[in-house]
Structure formats: structure tokens, C-alpha cells
Design a protein around this nucleic acid. Structure first.
Length: 184
DNA sequence: CGAAGGATCGTCT
DNA sequence: GACGATCCTTCGT
């Protein structure tokens, strides 16, 4: 399978969030390979989205959201967890990213179980903080180009998926926007 | 099985 | 100095 190119992410953030469903997230550590199919995403945009980190201003943390598409935006939250996003936007907005909220484990499940300190498949990667822990994604991956074959990238698939949409999780503003997407 | 609360620290005001 | 794009455990039903 081919890696998704820059053009894939050069579209409206909300559209990219939908399009990423069914795609494969690949994490390589030495000879080991872990992967999973993306099953839940959320779109975060710019000035029209009060829930977005990029809503107010460009800062040291969110600056990657204002830059080139296809890059990893990883941030640390609640003093414990990392969340993993991909920068995606069209020319109409200055900033945007897609939060990867859940994946379905594919390869390297044993390592994921070790990283998560549990075997329960249901709870392995069904949350943004969980999947970063399972795949060993940290702030070291901030700014990594996901359109290049390296230790972290996203592959195209031929999956055809049906999408359900909902409100985004854990936010206090922008709750009227149905920018959470899941595979039905 | 749902609700509630604690953990824990980087980032922004 | 407050709080968060979360997770896990505990407690009550």
C-alpha cells in the first residue's frame, strides 16, 4: 500500500477527518511494526472553531497547525496523556488538524498490550491517550512528516467505510458542530 | 453499569 | 494560578 500524499491533507479539515477513517496508521520501532485502522477522528479548525487549539493565536504549542499539511501535531494533556493529530486544511483557513481518537489494532498487538499493561483488546486503542500509549507516540514525534516512510506514517487503503457523525468529545465550546466521525 | 473524583504537569492568561 | 481535544479506579445502585 502507498503512503497518503500531501494532497490528501490539502483539503478542508472536516473532509480529511472523514477521509482518514479506514486508513492505516503505521508505527515502526526498529524491526518491530505496529499498525491499526483508524476508526474515529475529530476535526479542529481555526477561527470558526472555538474548541480548537488554534482558535485564538499561534503559540509555541500549536504553531504546527498553521504550517505544512501532513505533519504530526502531538500535544501533552491532563499531565498524563499525549494526543496525536495530523495537520490538514485547505487554502481557505490558516490552521487545522485532525485528532486521531481511536484505531483498530492490526499488527504488533503484543507490544501494544505490553505498552498498555493490559490484554483487553477493547481498551487497547479506543481513545486518543490510549492509542498514543500503545504505539509509543510522544512529543518526539511533534512535527514529523507523516507522508514520508519513517517510524510513523499513514498508508492508503481500499477500505470503503460508512461514517457516522457526532459532537466532539471533552470540549466546552463548539458543541454544535458535528465534527466527530466514526466508522459505523 | 454509570457517576464521580483523582492523577499530574505543560501551556496559556 | 487555573485548567485541559483523558484515563482509570472506586463507589454506589
Amino acid at each position: 500500500m502507498n503512503i497518503l500524499p500531501k494532497e490528501f491533507y490539502q483539503k478542508d479539515t472536516v473532509a480529511v477527518a472523514k477521509n482518514l477513517l479506514g486508513k492505516k496508521l503505521v508505527r515502526k520501532i526498529g524491526d518491530l511494526q505496529m499498525s491499526g485502522i483508524i476508526v474515529e477522528t475529530e476535526a479542529y479548525r481555526h477561527k470558526d472553531d472555538p474548541a480548537s487549539h488554534a482558535f485564538r493565536n499561534i503559540t509555541e504549542r500549536n504553531k504546527i497547525m498553521f504550517g505544512d499539511v501532513g505533519m504530526a501535531y502531538v500535544y501533552f494533556t491532563y499531565g498524563i496523556h499525549y494526543c496525536f493529530n495530523v495537520v490538514a486544511k485547505n487554502f481557505k483557513i490558516d490552521a487545522g488538524a485532525v485528532l486521531i481518537r481511536a484505531i483498530k489494532p492490526d499488527k504488533g498487538i503484543t507490544r501494544m498490550q505490553e505498552n498498555r499493561h493490559m490484554k483487553d483488546m477493547k481498551n487497547l486503542t479506543n481513545g486518543p491517550g490510549k492509542l498514543t500509549q500503545a504505539l509509543e507516540i510522544t512529543k518526539e514525534h511533534y512535527g514529523m512528516d507523516l507522508t514520508k516512510k519513517s517510524e510513523l506514517y499513514i498508508e492508503d487503503t481500499t477500505n470503503v467505510v460508512k461514517i457516522s457523525k457526532s459532537t466532539r468529545v471533552g470540549i466546552k465550546t463548539g458543541t454544535e458542530l458535528l465534527w466527530n466521525f466514526k466508522i459505523k
